[in-house]
Design a protein around this nucleic acid. Structure first.
Lengths: 349, 349
DNA sequence: CTGAAAGCGCTAACAC
DNA sequence: GTGTTAGCGCTTTCAG
């Protein structure tokens, strides 16, 4: 076990017989140090196991090189993969990362959160929570008092805020149009919890696309799940009752789709023969469901990386007094991945 | 946009017409302040939007109230759920959490990591990476130079180190024994990457249980995957060739099991009729595969929470000079969850 | 109850 | 090249 108090720069200076300043120059690779001095000091540093204090350094330099990420729902595929991208990019760009995970997607204590971010003197905030309706706008307002930039992540662009977004609405349209193109006409939808903006927008894409094709949606051909496979199973049972003519389902995520497919098969129905399916997210398992699941893919990790890139750009621009307006919001694509679950029904001769 | 430099305690003191100490007493809820003074100062604080600097405070108090978590593979179910538990418990106990995510499970730069942890003056480290063979021991050694406690997570107990563990070996035994109990005799295994201690130990449990039952394992009845559904599919194809008499498979995680089941069904075989299956992890989807997958459950979130609890206990004990030996390593159970995929074959009359 | 002085570990800005 | 002097923003001690 190592000893109690840390070794300070003064201790190093004394045992090396130089001033603190010289030690400082050595640890910062300052050029104006004689080679012999540098080597000697370095030796003392190594022997003593000295590590400069980032705390003290932050205080003098007025810079923490730390950013905070606010997440929620790390058990979900999206948030955890986004976080993966965030951590790796932050590391790459030389920022320490403070993580704040919201239990249950709710912020019961905005004031506490804002206080924390302020007191820690983070240089920026990556807001990587799923957008919950009613909360998003509030978040933006509450966080606007921060002296530090915040990059939001989410479905739709946000007025006067920096953001990285994937177009969930477009994804919903694309998924639905794909089913229409494949010849299906009675297309149901299993949404995520509609409090989630992601879920709401995917559903809007579905509804609008149906309308445009002259296939009006109704309350009878959609059901709401909670992203879990179990809820997908429950929802599909509901739809089979309310909308028996259903020949295809656009499900708002792959996990619910997998849950729904299980029920459909248990009832002896064929996929896509009787009911076609398309999911969302392209989780690894969806390529191995039976049948393999058509889906919409988003690159969560890239989303995380882009969030940090933008944030760091803003931090730098702000410090250098550059123009922020040059920084464009970032939009990532939602790609259609066609597998067997949505293939066109065989035409009857 | 807020202004540049933060408001300091001095600024507050001046505009309130008191000394810094008085302000300090107010923000720390020190009792020895006149009520009128306190209210006045608090008002100034609110008006100015003052937030005390955790950096400065850390410097004087020699305490950061920060712990670091080292993770890897956040895209995997286990690590992301463990992290979820870690973040929530750290929050609950009043610690800020610095996250360091290793790309590709490897530590290319131990020195850099140790330097980071030292310089940030974290008060403890939660080592929440999957244990990779050969690396674990190295990690323990390298991190032993830290002046701060480290709690490791992993399969097997670690000599002279604090740890939280689930018994993967016992889980492997349990899964295999279940298949034997159900009447299967030709039990294959699809392992995770054997570089992972988790994978290795589950496999050992399988092998030892077979041996004990007089059903010796061989190189022909096991195959190695990489935890992904795709690799499970590949592995099962291999097994069907090398071990055609196979009537059951213990798969080291649910995702590979799902990939394998897909192939088995494609070949027109029944589960569990022709081949029974048991997975590991109890991911949400496994209850909704066809058929529902028998599996071994571990509570990842609890594991994360326990890791932080133990770590904080150690931090406190160490600071208070208490005896550390009273702190027990923590072991979490691996529970068998029986579903249809492993049900006893119907006896032929 | 309140304030003045000293110091946490480091770096910036000047001397020499 | 190297050392000295002042802080960075806060808390701790000790006076009053």
């Amino acid at each position: 076990m190592s000893k109690n108090s840390q070794i300070t720069i003064l201790k190093v200076a004394e045992t090396a017989g130089v001033s603190k300043q010289t030690v400082s120059r050595v640890i910062n690779n300052h050029p104006d140090v004689a080679d012999i001095t540098r080597k000697h000091v370095q030796k003392v540093i190594d022997e003593l196991g000295y590590h400069p204090s980032a705390v003290a350094r932050s205080l003098t330099k007025q810079r923490t090189h730390t950013i905070a990420v606010v997440t929620a729902g790390l058990n979900l595929v999206g948030p955890s993969n986004v976080l993966n991208g965030i951590t790796l990019k932050a590391e790459e760009l030389g920022y320490a990362l403070l993580i704040k995970n919201l239990a249950g997607f709710r912020i019961d204590d905005y004031q506490g959160l804002v206080r924390f971010l302020n007191e820690m003197r983070v240089e920026g905030v990556a807001w990587a929570c799923p957008d919950i309706q009613h909360y998003r706008q509030e978040s933006i307002e509450k966080l606007s008092t921060l002296p530090t930039p915040v990059v939001f992540q989410g479905s739709s662009p946000i007025e006067n805020a920096l953001f990285v977004t994937v177009d969930n609405y477009a994804g919903g349209c694309r998924a639905t149009q794909h089913l229409i193109d494949q010849g299906f006409r009675n297309i149901a939808h299993i949404s995520g919890p509609l409090a989630f903006a992601d879920a709401e927008e995917r559903k809007s894409g579905w509804a609008d696309t149906l309308l445009k094709a002259g296939l009006p949606p109704s309350s009878l051909n959609s059901a709401e799940g909670d992203w879990s496979a179990a809820s997908g199973a429950t929802a599909v049972v509901e739809l089979m009752n309310t909308y028996p003519e259903m020949d295809a389902i656009f499900v708002a995520n792959d996990q619910m789709a997998i849950g729904a497919m299980q029920i459909i098969k248990e009832r002896g129905l064929q996929i896509p023969g009787d009911i076609a399916m398309i999911g969302y997210d392209n989780i690894a398992e969806s390529a191995f469901s039976s049948p393999p699941l058509t889906t919409i893919a988003q690159d969560f990790e890239l989303m995380g990386a882009k969030t940090i890139e933008l944030l760091v750009d803003v931090i730098n621009a702000q410090r250098d007094g550059n123009d922020l307006s040059a920084l464009q919001p970032i939009r990532l694509p939602a790609d259609l991945i066609v597998r067997k679950s949505s293939l066109r029904r065989v035409e009857v001769a």
